[in-house]
Amino acid sequence: MMLCVAAGAFALSLATDRFTLDWTHSVARTGWWERWQITDAGLTPVEARITGAGAGMEPPPDARLQDGVWHYAPQVPPQRQVVLAASGATGAGWQLCAHGTCHALPEDQGPLRLWSAERCEG
């Protein structure tokens, strides 16, 4: 299965069944990190960490605080596609990592779309 990422003229395809995303929240300036699994049902977030709360992005009630970071398992069903907004206000955009290699995703090409497929097209 391939992880497909596209925005404007930007396209990235990775042969992987898992990946991480991290970014800085544009208002609260808190660090966010998520681990995702790719299954036949779609993209599923399986673990998340945040360094703080605010601006409507609070950790869920079951989150546990460990060494100043909130850890939790997102309760979100598999998604056929995930759309990431990029405000350009954080000084750094989204970072996607898979198999030990990280990719800075562009902030200036419009929303980023992620999905899984046998081949990345469209």
Rank of each mutant, 00 (worst) to 15 (best):
E47D: 13
A48Q: 05
A48R: 02
I50R: 04
I50K: 01
T51F: 04
T51Q: 06
T51A: 10
G52C: 03
G52V: 02
G52S: 03
A55H: 14
A55Y: 13
G56W: 01
G56Y: 01
G56C: 06
G56L: 06
G56N: 04
M57K: 05
E58V: 04
E58K: 04
E58T: 10
P59Q: 10
D62G: 11
D62T: 11
D62Q: 14
D62H: 15
R64L: 12
L65T: 02
Q66D: 15
D67V: 07
D67N: 15
D67H: 14
D67P: 03
G68Y: 06
G68L: 05
G68K: 03
V69F: 07
V69M: 08
V69N: 06
W70K: 03
Y72P: 03
Y72A: 11
A73C: 12
A73M: 13
P74I: 11
Q75Y: 04
Q75P: 01
Q75K: 12
V76M: 08
P77A: 13
R80S: 11
R80Y: 02
R80A: 14
Q81D: 13
V82W: 04
V83P: 05
V83R: 09
V83H: 05
L84F: 07
A85L: 13
A85N: 10
A85K: 10
G88F: 09
A89N: 15
A89C: 07
G91F: 12
G91P: 08
G93C: 09
G93W: 02
W94H: 06
W94F: 01
W94K: 02
Q95T: 13
Q95Y: 07
L96G: 00
C97F: 05
A98C: 06
H99F: 08
G100T: 10
G100L: 07
T101P: 02
C102G: 08
H103K: 09
H103E: 08
L105P: 00
L105T: 02
P106D: 11
P106Y: 12
P106M: 13
D108K: 12
Q109F: 11
Q109Y: 12
